[in-house]
Amino acid sequence: MRILVVDDSSTMRRIIINTLNKIGYSDYAEASNGREGVEKLASDAIDMIITDWNMPEMSGVDFIRAVRANDQTKHLPVIMVTTNAAQEDIVQALDAGVNNYVVKPFTPDTIRERIQAAIHG
């Protein structure tokens, strides 16, 4: 399964990728904001998306809306990983089409559970 990791922080992308490696997912692509994520989806065979919320150029929520508006990508499972933990933030992300939501900081077990839930949910 090829996972697209979208985050403007190269450090956080690396942490997420290290976490994915630990839990058995070693095929990934990277993008540093939603706009790059849209471009990557058009050129790469992606099976799942893990995205941050707060990013320049195109936020995670706007990125998810773009993913859901495209017939080629609207079926993809999307997990949002963010420090935004307020109830209204979670509701907004779910309204935009996110399948699952992880509040930083997180453990590898949390990411594994959310991926499994997004795949099977």
Binding site: T83, A85, A86, V103, K104, P105
Partner: peptide
């Protein structure tokens, strides 16, 4: 991360 968790 620390400031975000503190805020939450």
């Amino acid at each position: 991360l620390v400031a975000g968790s503190f805020r939450t």
